[in-house]
Computed example of a mutant assay.
Amino acid sequence: MIDRMDHLVLTTAQETACIRFYVEVLGMQLETFGEQRKAFVFGAQKINLHIAGKEFEPKAQHPTPGALDVCLIASQPLEIIRQHLANHHIDIECGPVMRTGARGPIRSIYVRDPDLNLIEIAEYV
């Protein structure tokens, strides 16, 4: 019935810092669409951005900055990602550790974005 995920919505209380993190640190493309909507585009997916208190309808019942826990698959080896994060002064909260992804074993590191969402960055092993 369901084939894949197309996008998800991230609610932020810190728009500028959030955009910097997802664009400069994670390398996503910032897209503006509609009248003033923004999204981070990567691969065949995107993350729509909502500003806390100014969300678009319809929305989650209780949109909250810092409630996201997501796993992103890296396009480069995790060691390169780790160095890139260090160059941007992003602390690794946990890892590398072995986990299970949708298609098998993954090796992951965990970081926090400016709203303290948990961002898992992984590679399949």
Rank of each mutant, 00 (worst) to 15 (best):
V25H: 06
V25L: 09
L26K: 05
M28A: 10
M28R: 04
M28V: 03
M28P: 06
Q29D: 14
Q29F: 07
Q29H: 09
Q29A: 14
L30F: 02
L30D: 12
L30T: 04
T32F: 07
T32V: 12
F33V: 07
Q36S: 15
R37V: 04
K38N: 07
K38A: 08
K38C: 05
A39S: 14
A39G: 14
A39T: 01
F40I: 01
V41L: 06
F42M: 10
G43M: 08
A44N: 13
A44K: 12
Q45G: 02
Q45E: 14
Q45K: 10
K46S: 11
K46G: 10
I47D: 05
I47F: 08
N48L: 05
N48A: 12
N48S: 10
N48C: 15
L49D: 08
H50N: 14
H50Y: 09
A52T: 03
G53H: 03
G53E: 06
K54A: 13
E55D: 12
F56L: 13
F56E: 14
E57I: 03
P58N: 04
P58Y: 02
Q61L: 10
P63V: 02
P63K: 01
T64K: 13
T64M: 12
P65N: 05
G66W: 03
G66Y: 01
A67I: 00
A67T: 07
L68R: 01
L68S: 00
L68V: 11
L68D: 05
D69A: 04
I73Y: 13
I73A: 06
S75M: 14
Q76V: 01
P77Y: 11
P77C: 11
L78A: 12
L78V: 01
L78M: 10
E79N: 14
I80Y: 14
I80E: 15
I81G: 08
I81D: 06
R82L: 11
R82E: 15
R82N: 10
R82V: 00
Q83H: 11
Q83K: 15
Q83T: 00
H84F: 03
H84K: 13
H84I: 00
L85R: 01
L85V: 03
A86T: 00
A86I: 00
A86D: 11
A86W: 00
